[in-house]
Amino acid sequence: MDLSPVAEDYLKAIYYLETENGRPVRTSDISEALDVTSPTVTSMLDTLDERELANYTPYQGVELTDRGREVVLQLVRNHRLLETFLMEYLDYSWSAVHDEADRLEHHVSDEFTRRLAAFLGEPATDPHGDPIPDADLRMPDESPYTPLTEFEPDDRVTVEQVPHRDPDVREYLSRHRIGPGTRLVVEEVSPIDLVTVVPSSTGASVALPTHVARRIGARAVTK
């Protein structure tokens, strides 16, 4: 399907907002996510609706169609395979691969993606622990990881999945050496929306806002 990278970015934004907040998605949320004006969003949503990639109702919001969701899942597959390649073979860090893959995902063919997946051994997850859609664009129904917010003080865990689309969150976690594979001790779960953890690599306490900690997936470590 002949779509511009800009149109594809709109579809991805709708997909992630649907996933995080439910549907239909408000135009104001898309405007904020993509840092564009409301009239610009409305114009693009009209185009996506005409192309049967989204169902847009003014003043009510927008939802992806099955066709639109298929386009997005192919982009997600491209993106996460590219991230895996960049980290495993070009020595990118987990915190740097997202932006690079964002630029590349729009410009690879389905055949390239098929070959890349085979070359990488058909990985199930990317460097951030996110699932990679399979060749039929199917996603797992549930994450195998437990949100960090569900652990108790003194629990020892290994981080398996980190939020990475927000550059400020990415930078904060990277600066405090928290990423996939990091071992943590949960120090405190505060009633004021903070989870404090201690990475084994630094031994220094790190305060995580609950909305960030909730998006960090982890596995319990047996003492």
Rank of each mutant, 00 (worst) to 15 (best):
V97I: 05
E50Q: 10
P131E: 04
V185W: 07
I178D: 00
T40E: 05
D141L: 14
L34K: 15
P24S: 05
L208G: 06
V159D: 01
A7W: 03
L137W: 08
L34C: 13
G121N: 12
E160L: 10
V41R: 01
I30R: 11
G22H: 06
A118M: 15
R183V: 11
V206Q: 00
L148N: 02
L120H: 12
R23Q: 05
D102M: 07
D193E: 09
D168L: 06
I216D: 00
D154A: 14
E63A: 03
V41S: 02
R183F: 06
I14C: 01
R219W: 01
N78V: 03
F119M: 15
L116D: 15
P39G: 08
L82G: 05
I178R: 01
I192C: 00
G129M: 10
P167E: 08
V189L: 10
A96G: 05
E88N: 13
P180F: 05
M44T: 11
R69A: 07
V162Y: 03
T210H: 06
V185E: 13
P191E: 12
S201K: 03
L82M: 12
E150H: 05
E105V: 04
D168W: 05
L90D: 11
R23E: 06
S143V: 13
L17S: 14
S109A: 10
V25P: 00
A96V: 06
D2H: 12
D46H: 11
E88P: 10
D35H: 02
S174Q: 00
L75G: 09
V221S: 11
T65D: 14
V221Q: 09
L3C: 05
T196Y: 02
D99E: 05
D168N: 12
S4K: 04
R103S: 10
T42Q: 12
P180S: 11
V36Y: 07
A101K: 01
H107P: 05
A101R: 01
I192Q: 04
P191W: 07
V6D: 01
V212N: 01
P153S: 06
P209I: 06
Y89E: 14
H98N: 14
V159W: 00
V36F: 07
G22Y: 01
T158Y: 10
D29K: 14
L184M: 08
S43C: 07
T196P: 00
Y10K: 04
L208R: 02
D155N: 08
H164L: 11
R138Y: 14
L34F: 13
E100A: 15
D141R: 15
E122R: 13
A213K: 02
V185P: 08
F151Q: 00
G181W: 06
A118S: 15
R26S: 15
A33W: 08
E100H: 09
V25M: 07
P153E: 04
T196M: 03
T158E: 14
G61Y: 06
A7C: 08
L53C: 11
E142S: 12
E142K: 14
T202N: 08
E160G: 09
E20L: 12
V195A: 00
D66V: 07
Y145C: 09
D155C: 04
V62F: 04
F112M: 13
A213P: 00
E52K: 13
M44I: 03
